[in-house]
Design a protein around this nucleic acid. Sequence first.
RNA 1: GCCCGCGUGGUGGAAUGGUAGACACAGGGGACUUAAAAUCCCUAGGCCGGAAGGCCGUGCCGGUUCGAGUCCGGCCGCGGGCACCA
Length: 855
Amino acid sequence: MSRYSAAEIEPKWQQAWDEAGVFRAERMPGKPKYYVLEMFPYPSGRIHIGHVRNYTMGDVVARYKRATGHNVLHPMGFDAFGMPAENAAMANGGHPRDWTYSNIDTMVGQMKPLGFSLDWTRMFATCDPEYYGQQQALFLDFLEKGLVYRKNAVVNWDPVDMTVLANEQVEDGRGWRSGALVERRELTQWFFKISDMSEELLDALDTLDDWPAKVKTMQANWIGKSRGLQFSFGLTDTSHGYDRVEVYTTRPDTLMGASFVGISPDHPLARELERHDPRVAEFCKQARQGGTTEEAIEKAEKLGYDTGLTVRHPFDTAWELPVFIANFILMDYGTGAIFGCPGHDERDHEFARKYGLPIIDTFLPVEGEHDIQKEPFVPPKTEKVRFTRLVAGEKIQTGNEAIDATIDFCEANGVGQGVTKFRLRDWGLSRQRYWGCPIPVVHCDDCGVVPEKKENLPIRLPYDEGDKPIDFSIPGNPLDRHPTWRDTPCPSCGKPAKRETDTMDTFVDSSWYFARFTAPRAETPTVMEDAEYWMNVDQYIGGIEHAILHLLYSRFFARAMHICGHLPEASKEPFDALFTQGMVTHAIYQTQKDGRPVYHYPEDVELKDGKGFLEDGTEVEIIPSAKMSKSKNNVVDPVQIIADYGADTARWFVLSDSPPERDVEWTAAGAEAAAKHLGRVYRLASDLTDGEAETDEADEHLMREMHKTVHDVTLGIDSFGFNAAIAKLYGFTNTIAKSRAGSVARRMAIKTLAQLMSPMTPHLAEEIWQMLGGEGLISQAPWPKADPAMLVEDTVTMPIQVNGKRRGEIEVPKDLDPAEVEKRALANEGVQRTLDGAQPRKVIVVPGRIVNVVM
RNA sequence: GCCCGCGUGGUGGAAUGGUAGACACAGGGGACUUAAAAUCCCUAGGCCGGAAGGCCGUGCCGGUUCGAGUCCGGCCGCGGGCACCA
């Protein structure tokens, strides 16, 4: 009898798979293909236990699909451009490229021992010139089709470092390094015209049947289709060169409750006033302070500046409203101007009270009271309300009805028009940074903005500054100050010109990598034959944090690539099924020192009766289920887990316990238990001896359980119920261990158990398969099938409730007549006791399920 | 602030509107052992009770239903996203 040693068997089987080329994906017409993809990692330097969980789920699907006769594509790559590489270079010297490739090497080295069934020959990193060169080609194609354009947009500007900051580099409205108050500043930037596809991206969500509903809801809300009224307020004083202010509102029914007009500090009228009035300029400067995020703007104190200008109300020309410049209105949204109705909007209410503006109701609750001066009345638009100041429609109607009526009325009377708008803005892709894909255009004094010629691609990032290394510790974009890289002849006229120094948002890189995997070495972005064969991604797996941006951008890219002939029509929605998995969490162990928390590593904490102690006996506070974070010392390193227990244990554990879409808590005890269980399965197989007492009845029972397990586990894997499948496998293992069946039946049961476990614990499964004389590799064996005849039970246990409370149960033949079930249920001892002679008023029999007696 | 989720024993969690707590961890008891480790068996939501059994129980409050962890409304707490983190 040998002992289970993961360290011995895992490398052995990985080598066997490698040699047999089991996971290499090649087109095989005639065999159904299956493309399973996990969101590729950022090369931070170490794999994280969350990666292990993500890729294990994908691997289970890949291995299962292979066993059910599919030709599987399961690739891996790296999302390798981005800020951390530059930050590392800034902090520790070195070069982003060296840092990134070295990290990739390390991470591949950490991933391979996990035994994922990946086709490593297709691997690439988005920072490979072979990849980003094709991305530049895509950009040029998009440009030609009018899918890319330039316009102004606001960025976070650090006035001390004189550089653009990412949102995460803005802390409490200040630059992370300089500490200077950040300003919103306009810059000319490149944009993808995603807004042109708003309607289509919204409508097509309905076709994504195998996406989580919550993701579709989030995307729909993000796209934000709304119908509203666009109209103008006439200015009473036209001396500043403007005669009106154009506004857009989704609540035209509150028009009679307007009490001010607000414009953005970047509105042309505000800009005009700013030029002539230092007080306005001062206010606008202040209003532009703070970050660009919606969150920062929403949470900032609402400030306004009364311009002294007034406008006329469109339905009462005697009614004049003041015009304010307000810090919470962005030029990017709508027309950059709004009208405020404090009676029916939280934000406007706050603003009105601050600046002493009137609060007027236009509708009130149908019943009851509401003090509009105290707080705004903001019911759902579907609720009926009583209008007090009506533009159009009935006195009592819903908000939606009133909005429609108002738009009709306004259009009929020449006051503006109904407009459908989308919240979705165009995708700004310019980044003023080095470590990204260079935007392949040239700025020529004579020809303007000229696309680079395709034969000159890739436009490579310069590694150094010619005679000296790039100094990343200087704020700003090294491409911008590079002595020679910018210089290039104009592709159009040949005269000396300058390259664009902005690089692309890293979301661009991850918006088409799934397509590139179908032909990763091609000289064009994709190869139609390969794309047609492998696309779409049948199962995409990743974190919920990507629910909106990454997935929406990818959907846009797939459409844009189709327009340019890089993807087939059928791939406009590139991900057939989506699964969003939860995080792996771990307890934080902390003590207090001088009022500050001190975090302790798990290996320094001894657990006893649910309490934790340090070596010196100090008790530590345990904060369960916390997100893993380096600064909290609660990160679990998969490499250590593999060294301690082996890959199969790590894989088994991350799938067990928690449903995949939920967070899972990593505990040392849990990992220990997983390892023990795998050892037990191994022992069951290696202890299997011939010549035990053979009893037909026990054989029959074991075979029935086996078929049930095959059925349940198959269903579990099909529906991403990995934790449930594992619970069944635990149960079946117990059944085998206790079974008195003969060795033939037991051998069959354990071989089947190995097959059912093989997607989760492939190395152990191969070992057992070989031990029990299975043919070839288990990785290439067909998936077991459950015999339907073995699944049906003759009798069923039915619980009996009285008034919804369980009082007993009866064992009845499966198809017993409901009237007979009722009779037997009423005769039940527990029911009789509870009824205590009373007559039941009603008896509900749900065949095969439950009986409820109502008294 | 806005959008989307989640909340069940000591712990991770199970449960097509139909027996709440499957499976597992920690705990308790036992077997084997000179002893320990390993392994195996039993037990286990809380309260009352010797037992039979009863009462309570899925974050909180209310509703729909013969029946609610599950559906609806309100609240509290936690997490994800908010367009330059990936």
